[in-house]
Computed example of a mutant assay.
Amino acid sequence: MNRRNFLRWSGLAALAALAGGVTARSAMAGNKYYTGPVSDHFDGKVFFNPGGEEPGGFANLIRWKLGGNNKAWPESFPSPFPQAVPEKRVAGDRMSVTMVGHASFLIQAAGLNILTDPVWDERASPVRFAGPKRVNQPGITMGDLPPIDIVIVTHNHYDHMDLETLWVLQGRDKPQFVTPLGNDDIIRSRLADARIDVMDWGGLLEVGGGVALHCEPCHHWSARGLNDRRMALWAAFVIETPAGKIYHVGDTGFHSGINYRAAREKHGSFRLANLPFGAYEPQWFMKAQHQNPDEAVEGMLLCNAAHVAGHHWGTFKLTDEGIEEPVVALHAALDARNLPRERFRPMRPGEVFEVPAATA
């Protein structure tokens, strides 16, 4: 195999770990990360979405990649915002969210600094030389981050769990890591001394100062390679603070809106929801794991979110749509429902969103 073909295949293998291209047989040898009782979303070996849809296997991955509908991205897509220098703390009724890139946010509320799915690496990939490469710089330099108290890792895909970034944060701040079942084993492989709270769907973690974290379902899956499919759990998180509730969804398929309705029924309403709205084409392949912009807007309404920080677009090319197509489709979805565009903000790296107070 020549170098060009090797790099092409390595890139495909890296993408397979993100997009579902592994076979179901890989999960049958036993779970390498988690051992626990059978539940409505764990069969004793692997996790699953109750009543949901599994991601496509390797044959469908090849069908997608040979489909010829891929739209090229520019090599560079710089943000219109300069890299942010956040305040050290945000307190009182204020709530501030700064976009780092992709699904990485700095959330500041109730005096706490919370990072979600932090990825500062150049690639979202199991290898350093191939796989999705970022087209813009992180919206905050690591040196300009305020002290980080909590790091939420929603699942183990490479565009959400970057062990090198977590290692730097551990050396820098020794934060409290919060993640769903099984992911702690992966994190400890790089951060042996990390303080990790592991949660199952429906779990509650009291942080203190009126802040609590709720681990909630989303429709997704997990894998770090070709032999650990669905062996660690994926989740959304509700961050309950005195300044209001935040619904953070790192990755999800729409799943008929089931999880959005459940979040509203349990939590009532949200001052802010962080919702993904990119990486959705072709929809026949991606719908079980990534929602499209129209579905994201419907999710905003179903979970009763006053404002949305939109993410999972414009940093790593994972799927076929053009780089700005998610925003065009998002605006069309909002306009079709006569909703103000400012309610659902497609965040760019370095952008700071001072979330308005929720009104009655």
Rank of each mutant, 00 (worst) to 15 (best):
M1S: 15
W9V: 14
S10D: 05
S10H: 12
L12C: 07
A17N: 15
L18G: 05
S26Q: 14
S26Y: 08
A27I: 00
A29Q: 12
T35Y: 03
H41I: 01
F42T: 10
K45Y: 09
K45H: 09
E53N: 09
N60T: 07
R63L: 08
L66T: 11
L66Y: 07
K71I: 03
W73G: 08
P74Y: 02
P74L: 00
F77R: 05
S79M: 10
F81Q: 11
A84M: 03
P86G: 14
A91H: 13
A91V: 14
G92Y: 08
S104C: 14
S104F: 09
S104P: 05
Q108K: 01
A110F: 08
T116K: 12
D117Q: 06
P118Q: 01
R123Y: 07
R123W: 05
V127M: 10
V127F: 15
G131P: 00
N136H: 13
N136Y: 10
P138A: 00
I148R: 14
V153W: 04
N156V: 12
D159T: 06
D162R: 09
W167D: 02
V168Q: 08
V168R: 15
Q170N: 14
Q170F: 04
R172K: 10
R172H: 11
D173Q: 08
P175C: 03
V178H: 07
D185A: 13
I186S: 07
I186G: 03
S189K: 11
S189F: 08
L191C: 10
L191H: 02
D193R: 15
D197N: 14
V198A: 12
M199N: 08
L204D: 00
L205C: 11
A212G: 12
L213A: 05
H219D: 00
R229M: 06
R230H: 14
R230C: 12
A232G: 06
A236C: 06
V238S: 06
T241P: 10
G244K: 01
K245R: 11
I246A: 11
V249K: 01
D251Q: 14
T252E: 02
G253R: 12
N259F: 15
R261C: 01
A279H: 08
E281H: 05
W284L: 03
H290V: 01
N292Q: 07
L302W: 12
A306G: 13
V308C: 04
A309M: 03
G310D: 13
W313Q: 09
W313S: 09
G314E: 02
I323W: 02
V327C: 13
V328Y: 12
L330A: 11
A333N: 05
L334Y: 05
N338T: 00
R343L: 15
M347A: 05
R348Q: 13
P349D: 08
E351N: 11
